[in-house]
Computed example of a mutant assay.
Amino acid sequence: MASPQQSYSVAEERSGHCAAMDQHCLYVWGGYVTIEENEVYLAKDEIWVYDSECGLWKVHFTDGDLPPSMSGSCGACLNGKLYIFGGYDDKGYSNQLYYMDLHSGSGVFTWKHVKNFQGKPPTPRDKLSCWTYKDWLIYFGGYGCRRHSELGDCFDVHDASWEEQMFWGWNNDIHVFDTEKQAWIQPEVKSTPPQPRAAHSCAILGNKGYVFGGRVLQTRMNDLHFLNLDTWVWSGGIQITGVKPRGRSWHTLTPIGEEHLFLFGGLSAESVPLSE
């Protein structure tokens, strides 16, 4: 039986959501709206789909192992599936991975919770980024929590509860989920990675995963880096000629063709929305 759906000219307003493209359709899930200064998480059983060929939004109601309603999750499409990792809700940060088959043929969107996997997943976090390469989901950065035994050079501590031995802060580690082997892998990264950060942007050109900007404490950065996804070697900060974009967070970085990246929007150091 086909999933219930309704058509709209525009999608329901939201922030902190996931958006990922598969073929000619954009899939949007999660996020929150602000009602009377309160953040209200949006329905976890809805997936909004924008068909770029007909210019129409549709909302589908989903079933299966529903993810909790969250913001700051990381969404990516790979091999006809939409994957959702991490995020934040009233209970804290998540490190759970969910996916749905976008082309099952049944007309029903069904979530599946990835529980049977090999390896160790990333620590709980939100506002991270993801590159898709080969059969891999490659995650970088984000803000989240770690136990005392999990601290290391790839984590910049922001706050701590010594009684609970729990720490909150920014990450700059790399974690790979191999969708064919159903395994988490943490590759040995060579050279110095970018500073830990969250709410940055990422994009991929060829075998290079690019990172721009993001936030640590009250600082919003404007540095550009790339990671060779075959050798796991980070570049240093890339020198930018011309008019260098100012520091920002919550912006987008989109590949245009094979040689260009399109940077747009975000929040400035003064938390002012940008339209550059």
Score class of each variant (00 low, 15 high):
residue 143 Y to S: 03
residue 181 K to T: 05
residue 186 Q to L: 09
residue 188 E to S: 15
residue 34 T to R: 12
residue 3 S to L: 08
residue 275 S to W: 09
residue 239 Q to L: 12
residue 162 W to F: 14
residue 210 Y to L: 08
residue 203 A to Q: 06
residue 195 Q to S: 13
residue 66 L to R: 11
residue 67 P to W: 01
residue 126 D to Y: 12
residue 149 S to E: 15
residue 1 M to H: 13
residue 212 F to W: 10
residue 149 S to W: 09
residue 231 T to I: 02
residue 89 D to C: 10
residue 81 K to P: 01
residue 68 P to V: 10
residue 36 E to A: 14
residue 141 G to C: 04
residue 219 T to S: 12
residue 112 K to I: 12
residue 41 Y to V: 08
residue 230 D to R: 07
residue 56 L to E: 13
residue 217 L to Q: 13
residue 256 I to Q: 14
residue 225 H to W: 13
residue 17 H to K: 04
residue 138 I to C: 07
residue 208 K to G: 06
residue 225 H to P: 01
residue 274 L to R: 02
residue 136 W to E: 14
residue 156 D to A: 11
residue 47 I to G: 02
residue 272 V to I: 15
residue 59 V to Q: 06
residue 124 P to Q: 07
residue 226 F to D: 08
residue 220 R to M: 08
residue 56 L to T: 15
residue 163 E to P: 06
residue 227 L to W: 08
residue 116 N to A: 13
residue 11 A to D: 04
residue 189 V to W: 05
residue 117 F to P: 08
residue 124 P to R: 03
residue 186 Q to M: 13
residue 246 R to D: 08
residue 84 I to F: 03
residue 152 G to R: 13
residue 87 G to F: 04
residue 219 T to I: 14
residue 212 F to I: 09
residue 25 C to Y: 03
residue 83 Y to Q: 00
residue 268 S to W: 02
residue 244 K to W: 05
residue 188 E to I: 12
residue 223 D to H: 08
residue 156 D to E: 15
residue 106 S to G: 09
residue 98 Y to D: 00
residue 151 L to H: 06
residue 77 C to G: 07
residue 94 S to P: 01
residue 179 T to D: 07
residue 200 H to Q: 13
residue 143 Y to N: 05
residue 63 D to A: 04
residue 99 Y to K: 00
residue 160 A to Y: 10
residue 45 D to L: 06
residue 147 R to L: 14
residue 178 D to L: 08
residue 191 S to P: 02
residue 274 L to V: 05
residue 181 K to L: 15
residue 229 L to V: 06
residue 55 G to A: 09
residue 151 L to I: 05
residue 110 T to D: 05
residue 44 K to W: 08
residue 257 G to H: 04
residue 247 G to Q: 03
residue 123 T to S: 14
residue 27 Y to T: 03
residue 4 P to I: 04
residue 55 G to H: 09
residue 60 H to Q: 08
residue 12 E to D: 06
residue 136 W to A: 07
residue 83 Y to P: 05
residue 220 R to A: 00
residue 249 S to L: 10
residue 130 C to H: 00
residue 10 V to Q: 15
residue 46 E to D: 14
